[in-house]
Nucleic acid binder design. Structure first.
Lengths: 121, 121, 121, 121
DNA sequence: GTGGTCTAGACCACC
DNA sequence: GTGGTCTAGACCACG
């Protein structure tokens, strides 16, 4: 059940990302219980400490909150989740666009490139 | 003269990126001489070791070559530079598109988002 | 009816504190009956185990005593309650003063700061 | 060289507090280098991981910043340090005052109590 | 040399 | 059962 992790990025951040995307896609919703630290550690083939760090990170992002002795839960505030979706989207788009512009590509080259990539996928 | 570097990514990679973009934009052309290690180190406000690593990286990418006693130069092979441009572009686009799809965005949302970002920039 | 609890401190201690303050303020007096464990648990939106621990703690402090089959009561010894008031006060003041001194604030800065805070409150 | 730590609070937070107080007292100034993780770990008789956590925390507070391969340093922004001083002071005072008021003490009782405690110290 | 991450495994307080 | 902290010790990329 051990997963494949990219070596360029810390494992805990990759897991954070994965969970965030599940939230954005609606697979995880407001108030849902996340697996226990030990459980997710087993699922991911990772040390419990690493998962611990994942959950701390999610809490720092105000995406999850932990209730003493009960577990870790996706925040109840749906607005925060919506905000997360927007944040990640615009962040992703903006960094993409500025990178492309810095490389000297024109707007039409960029749009055209994206369109082609979408067709092939 | 010290530049601002992102903490999330190694400084040497950020410099590599910067140089590659100058090449792609045509500010640096085939055969151009790059500054000496010490010179660039001072310009960037960075340790000479770091610049050394930058130049090794560029050699590994076959984008630059060092000639003993003369310095480091952008490769003479223009085809490689053209190729570099294509590589970086498709790499950038593909990772962007797959990320966005993983987040559950539709093709039209993506294209529309990019278009808007380009207008505002 | 669930209350808001601070995440930094155990819930049961926060409840203990709350009850102690009610006693100090005279809202709860010697011999008064406390709610049953289940009752308080519901009031507080908390697990009965947690309330159980609250009452144990109060017993340990000799502030409450439980009589089998009857319930939990504030102690009859008024002297203990008076003592509790003094204890909490000096404890609170002393830890405050030593903290402030450790931070390097002068006596006059401290007194002045307190005075201002009292005015604004 | 192992220090005495309170059992009620995590070690790493106690170290954070200690360092913050040294800053507030002016023993550590803007731009000063902090000991290396391993060094402080030995000084404190603590595991390097624990110190690591301390430094992450200081960074989160924008009180320290780390420079890759060089070490961890107190932030150069003196304004942040001044702000820290103010924050910790008002935080300390306000929580003290509200606690005392919640216990039903009058303003004059509070001021008088503080004054006495300062004399005896 | 530096900080950053990770594993293995333990103990604790809390609910 | 839960999360939170800690130790011991390792490996890595970075400057």
């Amino acid at each position: 059940m051990g997963q494949d992790f990219n070596t360029n990025q810390p494992i805990y951040l990759q897991i954070v990302q994965r969970l965030c995307r599940q939230i954005i896609r609606g697979e995880l919703g407001a108030g849902d219980k996340l697996p226990s630290v030990r459980e997710l550690a087993v699922q991911m083939g990772v040390n419990p400490n690493t998962v611990q760090r994942v959950y701390s990170e999610l809490e720092k992002l105000e995406v999850a909150e932990t209730r003493r002795g009960l577990g870790t839960f996706i925040t109840e505030k749906e607005s925060r989740l919506q905000q997360l979706r927007d944040e990640l989207m615009t962040e992703q788009i903006n960094s993409f666009v500025t990178d492309m512009k810095e490389m000297g590509f024109t707007a039409s080259e960029i749009v055209e490139g994206v369109r082609k990539a979408l067709e092939n996928a």
